[in-house]
Design a protein around this nucleic acid. Structure first.
Lengths: 331, 331
DNA sequence: CCTGCCTACGTTACCGGTAAACCTGACAGA
DNA sequence: TCTGTCAGGTTTACCGGTAACGTAGGCAGG
């Protein structure tokens, strides 16, 4: 990268400050000067140096950091998409990272990213290391916590309640006459948000006097196979379940495949419910009962909340983006 | 962010250069000085400023940019994951962007990112705007083109041949006795890599004397619904097909759902083949015939090729990561 | 004792922008 | 004619690091 403002300034016969103003679209120069400077910049193949700009202008960078649990998650891919579309339209660049459901990994990532002095950060989840929270408060940069709602965010929060999702599904299944429910999860207890859904589910069932009969928490990544084997394991331990709630839709579909292979009729013999609202869930031979999460909307709202804060516009600290329970034909 | 090297230097009674050396783990200071500096840095809550470091050290940044067609693609989510794991382990940070299958959007993104003076870039696809190529050559930074292999990369290439994927599937289906093949695609012609698979497929069929009977290129995003409606449309135009090749597995599964709903027996009445190797494809009632793409391996190889180049290690310019056709029960 | 070399630092210049202050000529109004 | 204002610039300082180079003191070898 060769040409800088100085080079353009010399070639155009002006000072580099004038070049800076022209190229950033400011004022204080004649039309003639503007055209000349632009032409020279173009001919020299000038590429602005955001490193120097952000550094010189006292860290007014256009970088935004975002940390998700896993990059292979379809739902987070959609959130990422929502964030990226909103941010790139507004001239920001997105640095990403994955924390693998570990707050320690999240903290390591945050330390790396904060040292780039980003304009703001988007984190997923409401659970963080104390050191992470201290660091972010001290840094004083806008932070949006997404996915799991919290009433006392570090700064801002956009999402919904996982506990409520679980409770709502529990109540729905009870209304459908289910009385002996099981649960199949993944990632053991590392995924606190999946755990929150289980907590809500369990509480709703217990309150109605039909407590959760059995649950199976796999160590695996949530996926089709995990759902399949999870249901197999659960049923090998406890035969007389009448419905199973899964960690997410992928796993529920895996469960559905297992039931079909074993001749278990769904929903007659066994109800199946998922969570997340993946597209495939609505195209199966039997539409999956699930909770649809407005992923892209969450991403968009998070990005917009961040940018509003950066521009000093008053925005609300907590944005609730409601999920929608979609009764299907499986439970 | 308050404390900088100067503050630490004053508090520790040394020069800021010594602080810099200590904190970066260099040499040229006593154990006593090291301990004192570290303690002061810790107590002041010092957070390094990579902006200043990258700028001062003549743009030796640890940022790597990566541009994918769509962030909502499951396959690219896996590639991203492979890249992120490899890079974060080596101390790099990942800036991402989506080009929506448009080389113009890609160029706009590249211009933004290059102005951050990243250590390197990862692009998807071999097709770029001339201006993009010029810019990258001039910038002289390492560039890895992934996904679609090219023998004349801008710099390096990691991937496989989409044309060969299509041809291989065509040959496989011919060996299985299929003679009247159709194709269902998406994104119209915007996705040049999907188009390349179709080209290879078409050529293989033509060469064997059983040319492609019909194809349906939707404008939609590739997904389950697109596959479902695509097959419906294709069959409404051309009844007597004996196999349909889909843009990817999601669409093939959508097609499978359509066939099932209409009582079309798979594979007896109609064969169905996909591409990509998504996990769900192997768990369906009938295992999908598809091409498995080693997504994570591609991401990892791309990141490692990039870092090898940065370290001046001799690496090969073109890395072939072979795909694997997996005959299933659907074609 | 002098020289050379090593350790453990300190000093200075510089990266490429941006903000803020300063400058200058032309022109208007009193 | 003098003064004020404005357009259209220029100059200077600075952001927080890093590289390159300078240097004081101690110690060994000849």
């Amino acid at each position: 990268m060769k040409a800088n403002l100085e080079d353009i300034a010399k070639a155009a016969g002006v000072s580099k400050m004038t070049v800076s103003r022209v190229l950033r679209g400011g004022t204080g120069f004649s039309d003639d000067t503007r055209d000349r400077v632009r032409k020279v910049a173009e001919s020299l193949g000038y590429v602005p140096n955001k490193l120097a700009a952000a550094f010189g202008a006292d860290q007014a960078s256009t970088l935004v950091g975002m940390c998700v649990p896993r990059l292979t998650s379809g739902l987070f891919g959609q959130v990422l998409d929502g964030v990226d579309r909103a941010l790139s339209r507004l001239g920001y660049q997105l640095i990403i990272g994955a924390n693998n459901h570990s707050t320690e990994e999240e903290e390591a990532w945050v330390r790396q990213i904060v040292s780039w002095r980003p304009a703001g950060l988007i984190l997923s989840g409401r659970t963080h290391q104390p050191g992470t929270v201290d660091l972010l408060r001290q840094a004083g940069m806008p932070v949006v916590e997404i996915w799991d709602l919290t009433t006392s965010p570090i700064d801002m929060s956009v999402g919904f309640s996982h506990v409520d999702c679980g409770a709502e599904m529990g109540q729905h299944l009870l209304r459908r006459g289910r009385r002996r429910a099981g649960y199949v999860g993944a990632l053991a207890r590392a995924d606190v948000m999946g755990q929150a859904r289980l907590d809500g589910f369990r509480a709703a069932l217990a309150e109605a006097g039909h407590p959760l009969v059995a649950s199976e928490l796999l160590l695996d990544m949530p996926g089709f196979y995990a759902g399949l084997y999870g249901l197999e394991t659960l049923l090998s331990r406890t035969r007389d379940l009448d419905v199973v709630y899964f960690h997410n839709d992928e796993m529920a579909i895996g469960g559905l495949a297992y039931a079909q292979a074993r001749g278990i009729r769904v929903p007659e013999d066994l109800g199946i419910a998922g969570w997340g609202g993946m597209e495939a869930a609505s195209i199966l031979p039997r539409r999956l009962t699930t909770t649809v999460v407005p992923t892209t909307a969450i991403g968009k709202a998070a990005a917009e909340a961040l940018v509003a804060r950066l521009k000093g516009e008053p925005g609300q600290d907590v944005t609730v983006v409601p999920t929608r329970l979609v009764p299907g034909e499986t439970g």
